[in-house]
Simulated scan of single mutants.
Amino acid sequence: MLSQSAKDGFDTLLTQALRQSLVPSDAACEVSVLANIGDIPEKKMVVLTVSSYLFRLMVMFYFNPDRGTQEHFARLNRLESAEMDEQSFMDAIAEAGNLCCGILNRDLGSFFPHIGMSTPNVIDTQCAAYLQTLNCEHIQHFAVDIDQSRRFHVSLTVSAYADIDFEVSAEELGGSTGELELF
């Protein structure tokens, strides 16, 4: 069972990771909670999983494969939009999701041992209609509004395999993406 503090902690750590991975360094963003998944208009999503022995969470990054989205990810990667072909565009979206979940994975490591992360998968957003079948204890949808860009949407689901209670404080929130860890 997830405590309310744990649900808030997962939400806080994800929103911090979103700010560090989806927002260009010269822009600001506002992350807000959406009450209804029906408010998410995008057609595709990148799905990643972060798991431990105690929980499994999934993060879904919604997007439309259009010019505005391509321009955002080109800007994020300091490229010209014209330099991105379809494959490099999809790679940039998947890598942004990977970076976000890597930050989330690192931050959750302060609370939980033995955490692993999946590789990104791109699927149709119609699959999101089946989130309830995962028997998640926590489902949250976010809108990410970025200056000089478009609105993006992200969903978080958390399934718990044990009682989970932790609290995130301001001191535990990192301000950088950290160093590359070699094994």
Rank of each mutant, 00 (worst) to 15 (best):
G116N: 13
F55P: 05
L13D: 08
V46G: 13
F142D: 06
L99S: 13
R75G: 01
I123C: 09
D147T: 12
E42I: 02
V168R: 07
S21T: 07
V50Y: 00
M58S: 15
L54C: 09
S169E: 01
A35I: 01
Q148P: 00
G9F: 01
A82T: 13
M1E: 10
N105E: 10
R106G: 02
R78P: 07
Q87I: 13
T177Q: 11
S51R: 13
H72R: 04
S118W: 01
A28L: 15
V47R: 15
Q87H: 10
V33N: 03
E167S: 04
D165V: 06
P113K: 06
L2I: 05
K43H: 11
R19I: 01
Q148M: 13
T69W: 03
L156K: 07
F112V: 03
A27Q: 15
P41D: 03
D107H: 10
D165H: 06
S118P: 11
D66V: 01
A74P: 04
D39K: 08
V158E: 07
E172P: 05
G175E: 13
V168W: 00
E80W: 05
L14F: 02
K44P: 08
I123K: 10
D85C: 00
V33R: 12
F63E: 01
P65I: 06
G174P: 03
V158T: 06
A96N: 05
R67Q: 14
E42S: 12
D91N: 13
S21M: 05
E181R: 13
N121L: 15
M1L: 09
A129V: 10
V122L: 12
A96L: 03
S159E: 13
D85F: 01
T119D: 09
L34V: 07
A17Q: 07
M117A: 09
N36M: 05
D11Q: 11
M1R: 00
Q148F: 14
I103W: 01
L173C: 03
S81V: 11
S155D: 05
F61A: 06
S5F: 06
Q4A: 11
E42C: 08
D39Q: 15
K43F: 04
A74K: 07
H138S: 06
V168A: 08
L14D: 02
S81Y: 04
I115G: 07
A6R: 00
A27L: 14
F63Y: 13
N77K: 09
A94S: 15
A27M: 15
R78T: 09
F183E: 14
G68K: 14
V46K: 01
R150A: 08
E80K: 12
H114W: 04
S118K: 05
N77T: 14
N121R: 14
Q70A: 15
D165S: 07
V168P: 07
S155G: 11
S159I: 13
V122R: 04
D165G: 03
